[in-house]
Design a binder for these strands. Structure first.
Lengths: 256, 256
DNA sequence: CCTCCGTTTTTCATTGTGCGAAACAGTGTT
DNA sequence: AACACTGTTTCGCACAATGAAAAACGGAGG
């Protein structure tokens, strides 16, 4: 049964639209969301009254401070993030490369925790940004362990090319996902960011389900030979410990 | 005229309630928000469908990743934060003490940007947390420059005591606010955190309205003598530069 | 300064959506 | 096994939300 309250649903989509098109006005947002102008106006009015959106002098709208504060609360409330933070810091202190905690959010990945390398190497992932499921170390680990419907949807959908090495062939990708599930870790090579490699492994919770991935993303010449092995071992030890901290008892759930 | 959509309004209050009472269930949230159980259930259902809230195995609700991601977008969209970040970093690099950017949000303050001192001294403010308007350096600067109705509401409302030195007398506070407006800066002494002082000054935007405060919060023995003067000058220079960057043309708006 | 055009705000009658109340189905507690 | 408690489901009614269209506003250009 569907208990969705349509006006609330629209309001949430409005926030989403606003996060993608900041600085737009009533008409533009109405078109974007498919709401009528009256609906749009009233939704924005309601959101503004509580500070979730802000109206500029030129009547363009942006997300407001309330949205930001709520987001910060959400971050604090996440048991996953709280549990992962020290582990992510540990890895970072040892190798001083980009360390990411990634979750799947619908058909995208989101980086929910990031310790960035000080050289500020440009990497695709950014704090709180979403990315694809089919490219990158963490993303492919999440995809390999996602419910079958999600995997199928991605494999049959468009596989956007990010670099020369992005895997855009469904069959190759399908085989790789199988390998990732078997190996329990994955090394991705410049398929999302040029000249970058990622070592990633899955984090499981008490139910055995994969809830996140930890990934170390570094220049290609760093993740090689002995350092690659060390990094892989470090990541594997860490996901193991973190999973246990989340209540995992060694009974993985495997999809597809 | 009031164009509020009541169901959307309730949904937003639900998110707010959830940020205050994470891990509660339908009944508890219904009581907290004053919504009926059906309303509460349906609102949570709608919020969950889009990932704004998450239902745990024990049917308790928490804010979800979508809320977090939206909050991160909101932070990126804020021209104030974007403009302030380098300035806050500058101050931090020079003095290595807590540097805060504070805004007023209704009857509270919120810390929207924070460079914390590495000694991890416990201070009241935390990233994305709200605080009172009548105690603390940044907060009092915001209160002094808030619309009269807000000032009156705070002065006639309860002035919570945080430390021995918190100013709880309305008349003393009123006089101090007047002084803060005249001086254009403020030194608060252990009225929110024991053994801590704050030097704070207001940031204005193109309209001349005070939109934020920059505050340096440090141990009492740091903010003394010559160092106090230096810090005050540094903060004053910085708010001046930031205000100009925001379009301020030297025409302050003064309330009360 | 005035005019025009696009956008936002307001109004109002109609209708379909969201609502309350109460029954039902789980969960775990005594 | 019975209970107490929370969460889920149903249903008809009322009024909140809606669409359409008019009014007000504001900025651009002459």
């Amino acid at each position: 049964m569907d208990y969705t309250i349509s006006s609330v649903d629209r309001a949430l989509r409005m926030l989403q639209a606003l996060s993608e098109l900041p600085g737009s006005g009533v008409t533009e947002l109405a078109e974007r969301t498919g709401c009528t102008k009256s609906q749009t106006f009233r939704i924005l009015y309601t959101l503004e009254a509580q500070g979730y959106v802000t109206k500029d002098a030129d009547r363009s709208y942006r997300l407001g401070f309330q949205t930001m504060l709520l987001g910060d609360q959400a971050r604090r409330q996440s048991p996953l993030i709280a549990a992962a933070e020290p582990h992510i810091n540990d890895i970072y202190e040892r190798i001083r490369q980009n360390v990411l905690l990634i979750v799947r959010h619908g058909m995208r990945t989101a980086c929910v925790l990031l310790r960035a390398s000080p050289d500020r190497d440009q990497i695709y992932a950014e704090f709180g940004r979403t990315g694809p499921l089919h490219a990158g170390g963490g993303p492919k680990v999440m995809l390999a362990n996602a419910p079958c419907e999600i995997q199928e949807a991605v494999l049959t959908g468009e596989l956007t090319r990010y670099t020369r090495k992005t895997i855009c062939d469904p069959d190759t990708l399908r085989a790789l996902l199988e390998k990732i599930r078997t190996d329990g870790w994955h090394l991705s090579e410049a398929d999302l960011d040029d000249d970058k490699r990622s070592v990633a492994a899955p984090v499981r919770d008490a139910s055995g389900e994969v809830v996140a991935a930890i990934s170390v993303t570094a220049p290609e010449d760093y993740l090689q030979g002995a350092r690659l092995d060390e990094t892989r071992d470090l990541v594997l030890q860490t996901v193991e410990r973190l999973s246990v901290a989340l209540g995992y008892r060694g009974t993985p759930v495997v999809h597809a």
